[in-house]
Nucleic acid binder design. Structure first.
Lengths: 343, 343
DNA sequence: TTGTAAGCGTTATCAC
DNA sequence: GTGATAACGCTTACAA
């Protein structure tokens, strides 16, 4: 690979001059010299060596992004996959690249620590945060640049961008209410889940605002699995008809799929006997029978907002306090799983 | 961040000595000195700076991996997502990291070229190859280290690892034959598709070996979509009953899902009236109704085989000619979408 | 307007 | 056994 010296030789100038021209540093290099340098660059096909440039400026132009912990093959990480793609795009627009890594040794912190200490990355983007996320705590402690997709402990002050799960689920529940539903149930994740909590709040909020009651047995909690959806519906349908919900809001499409499958087994027609709202807009959601009404997160927007904040921190540009956190509402996608309430 | 100089100062030795100890170069450093150096390293928490090391050794310890071209949200890239994860793991085990990039400007070659010329990466892994893949051609031309997951033009000699789609589909078709099916149809991709061609071959091969006929109208071709599956089944079911297939083999789960949906619409019971085999083992396949018999690619194995080859090329270790290419058979997963042929 | 040279943090070749 | 020191390719303060 040609170096800056080769360009200097070819153009008959010093390497400093070449560097000035390439980085268009003021130094007011004469027009002729500039032309000459560019000609030489073109001729020998020179591109500055990133490693050398990085060493000199003690940076790496790399952003670390951890793969969600070892996915079992059955796991659905479609949302994060798309987020990652958009993140890679945003990073490149800002002159960075994404370095992906895994938590091989099982210890996330060790992985982050190693990347920091070896100067491998200039910052991190983290996702799938938990309330007292060890990574967030560690990175705050180290005062190392990072931005997260997802909130954590509300008492911690760090930069994040997140989907407004509360607003999203509330929008879904409001749609159900508009369709005349009154007996609406919710399938949520276990209490510990942070994003699950926000989503569940949307249900309570929308119901309260509409003056509808939320009996304790209308809230089903479980892990994020198809089985959870099945279990919930089975429980509700074993109640006397009058006590059953006519609509169900869920925290994920995967759970909604369980509801659909169990409904089919029992001869319940979704969209007529029972209305259903998912969350995530999984690629398959449109192919389900019936197509699932759901909420889609604006992942491209989220990724670019995350990256904008991160590059500012890395570049020591100030970010206004009110811009440190950002909540974006998801988009309601109306399909056929929601119908008018049975009379 | 502490540098090698700090360690040298702390240990009371020269930086050369520290470097020797850290890279355990022969130079026979006395046991005492070694201890002392390690103590100093521990004490100040030193980790060698990757950029400096890379500059010195003119490498980057980074492997470039392009994100599949801009995914529409509906696209199912689960297979590649898992492959990428395993690839990241394999890379780390070999002391590399994955640098992911996108083809923003629309021109893949420009993206590869830039990463090569700036010394950003030591090699590439490419996936989703096509017959006359421009990336393969370009990287061969440049003689830059790369290994692909997927074959290309059979006349080109480059390193690849691929799933044996022919063997996979043949295994599925053989299962159908064992269940007594004789009238077996195939849904394939358009003729241009490379991997689709290999998979379709598996159908023809298994049928021929079993002495079964493959009438032209038993081969349906279309894009990789749910609709293709629907269209195919609709066509076959509009034939007189005697002329319909009793089983269908497909090149993808997505297409199989279309078949399932159309079957349901028509009251056809999959696993009884019609047997079905997918390909990919999408996460949702197990939740489909009925659960889909399908073929799973050994992605972890493929990733580690790809990486082993790539690190050898990068490290200028010889790879035996017979090891340059590797074909691995997928794994047949038997679920309830395959049943005995109707009598 | 341009060139000289220091230095980023390593590794590796020499001396001693 | 260990320590100077010259690279690696670049940016930039300072000199000319």
């Amino acid at each position: 690979m040609p170096t800056i010296k080769d360009v200097a030789k070819e153009a008959g100038v010093s390497i400093a001059t070449v560097s000035y021209v390439l980085n268009n540093k003021s130094a007011a290099i004469s027009e002729e010299t500039q032309q000459e340098v560019w000609r030489a660059v073109e001729k020998i096909g020179y591109r500055p060596n990133v490693t050398a440039r990085n060493l000199r400026s003690s940076q790496s132009r790399l952003i670390g992004y951890a793969w969600h912990e070892a996915p079992r093959y059955g796991d659905l990480n479609v949302v994060l996959e798309h987020f990652t793609y958009f993140l890679a795009q945003a990073a490149e627009s800002a002159g960075f690249h994404l370095l992906t890594f895994t938590y091989r040794c099982g210890d996330p912190i060790a992985a982050y620590d190693e990347l920091i200490r070896t100067g491998r990355v200039d910052g991190f983007v983290i996702a799938s945060t938990t309330t007292n996320d060890a990574r967030v705590r560690y990175l705050m402690e180290q005062d190392f640049p990072f931005v997260s997709f997802g909130r954590a402990n509300p008492e911690w002050d760090f930069m994040w961008v997140d989907t407004d799960g509360t607003a999203g689920v509330a929008a879904g529940v409001n749609l159900l209410i508009q369709h005349g539903h009154r007996r609406i149930a919710m399938i949520a994740w276990d209490e510990e889940s942070l994003s699950g909590g926000y989503r569940a709040n949307g249900y309570f909020q929308a119901m309260r605002e509409a003056g509808l009651s939320t009996p304790a047995n209308f809230i089903w909690r479980g892990e994020n699995s198809e089985q959870t959806g099945r279990d919930a519906l089975a429980y509700w349908w074993d109640l006397p008809p009058k006590e059953r919900p006519t609509a169900i809001s869920t925290v994920s499409d995967l759970i909604a799929i369980g509801v659909i499958n169990e409904a089919e087994r029992r001869g319940i027609v979704i969209g007529r006997d029972l209305s259903l709202v998912g969350y995530d807009n999984l690629p398959l959601s449109q192919y389900l029978h019936p197509a699932l009404t759901t909420l889609e997160q604006p992942l491209e927007k989220i990724a670019s907002e995350v990256l904008w904040r991160l590059t500012n921190v890395i570049g020591k540009q100030p970010v206004k306090p009110e811009q440190r956190q950002l909540l974006i509402a998801p988009h309601l996608i109306t399909r056929s799983s929601v119908g008018d309430a049975p009379v």
